[in-house]
Design a protein around this nucleic acid. Structure first.
Lengths: 266, 266
DNA sequence: GACCGACGTCCGATATTTCGGACAAACGGT
DNA sequence: ACCGTTTGTCCGAAATATCGGACGTCGGTC
């Protein structure tokens, strides 16, 4: 039991004003289920999903069976865990192919990742967060964590400094939540420092950050801009911080060329 | 007793005149909706989806609104069409990352596609059909059609001849529906011809087919085998039929090397 | 300007899906 | 072998999500 009284997060809090009888539509439960799997990023036991999403056990079993049949989910390991199934891949591929910029970006990201052998990514904003849309691992075998679909505070990233560079200081203060300027290790990013990075980036045409979210990692990013000059996405490399300056310069040139090719109506 | 007790799918799921009441669960409607979009491969108007899936219009509007909010779907073009949304990509990426063989195959496919500049694919069986799991377009700009997630009769493909090469003639006759031996243009593939291809492939370690489903296309495929020697997947190139023999030999060697690397416990 | 079809919303009724709880089988620790 | 826990299935009851149909808008056509 939780007699120990440790913070055992019970369930996702609902809006207080929500008049919840506990009963919900199947589709809403399924959405919660999928979001939960995406957050956990690991095959999960059905009973755990039920508990963590606040879904009755019998309902969850029923839904999971339906979804497994549709191949939205897959039973894993022979034990009772489930995770995403192949249908999600098919639908996701359809999505990627249907968005012009992303389709082009796939080619670029794959190309430059192969070319220089380092992890390349294509990123955008979603709401007030930074988001990795495409990730190509590169030859280096460490840090395979695909962060696709995970939202990250804008100030934690190199690309973030480009993605908001059409805003002035006041707009940025309004746009980015204050707590997002605190790094995972507790350090605080000064706002004027952030703005300075941003302006330098605008003139140089790229951003470099080192040891931001990870002490030994450098990020290099170049902006994809719409005809009005607004940064709508970025393409970037994630490399070890001790990468030589010459190598980094090559990567920066590579990024700039790719970003230029991706910029619509250039 | 539980083990293996999954999806005991009754082969005939839809009684032609089932017509229970016409009422269905939201989740079943949603599954039909997504499958329909995947089949159509294009943004579709809500009313059309409703008609084509046999869903009441008001229900479809209700569900689409829910799904758009969850970013499973996206409104397109400003007109009333919807298509898959970014959430599907995130979930699909999670799936790809979670399957060891597929994760490795992504690297191989991307690598060889970049290397030789032609479209490379990674394929498996799903039920009694052939299926493209990964597709990397290559430099050639024609034929962008990603066929990811579309099922194709086994005899229509080069890879198909590898994927069933552990069966004997009788098993194959039982496994592959007779109508699948008829090509899209009406031609009929003789069964002994198919078996011959298959056996030759087993000794040669690859398959080449030309002008099967498409008059001007050649497919080259190599088998990924499990420790027992059974073909569990294939990796292949799709190239113009007039590609020189020398170039094709290079590709075959490339495929064999990749397939070997992918074969578990080799 | 009147007509027509398509689009999207709204609303009440009821067929049905969700839910709670009971149950049996498997598991695992002592 | 015993017992507590976890897993998966089943069932009846009732809360409610689905459905049909009506309604207001919008655009295009004659």
């Amino acid at each position: 039991m939780k007699s120990g009284g440790v913070a055992e997060k019970p369930v996702a809090e609902k809006q207080p004003e929500e008049k919840s009888t506990g009963r919900a539509r199947g589709i809403d439960r399924v959405i919660a289920l999928m979001e939960h799997l995406h957050d956990r990023r690991a095959p999960t036991r059905i009973a755990d999903i039920a508990r963590d999403t606040g879904t009755p056990r019998s309902t969850m079993y029923e839904l999971v069976n339906t979804l497994v049949e549709a191949r939205w989910l897959e039973l894993r390991d022979g034990d009772g865990t489930v995770y995403f199934g192949p249908a999600m891949h098919y639908y996701g591929s359809d999505y990627l192919d249907s968005v012009d910029l992303i389709r082009k970006a796939r080619v670029e990201v794959a190309h430059i990742a192969e070319l220089v052998g380092e992890t390349a990514q294509f990123c955008t904003l979603e709401g007030d967060k930074y988001l990795v849309v495409l990730n190509e691992p590169g030859r280096r075998m460490f840090r395979i964590s695909s962060e696709i679909g995970i939202k990250v505070p804008i100030p934690w990233t190199a690309s973030g400094r480009l993605l908001v560079d059409h805003m002035d200081a006041a707009e940025i203060r309004r746009f980015i939540p204050a707590e997002d300027f605190i790094l995972p290790d507790g350090r605080h990013i000064a706002e004027d420092e952030f703005l300075e990075d941003m302006h330098r980036a605008r003139t140089q045409g790229y951003v470099r950050t080192t040891a931001l979210v990870d002490r030994f990692t450098t990020c290099l990013a170049a902006p994809v801009r719409d005809p009005a000059g607004r940064c709508i996405a970025t393409i970037c490399f994630v490399v070890p911080a001790d990468t030589t300056e010459e190598a980094q310069q090559v990567m920066i040139d590579t990024l700039k060329a790719s970003a230029e090719r991706l910029s619509p109506g250039r």
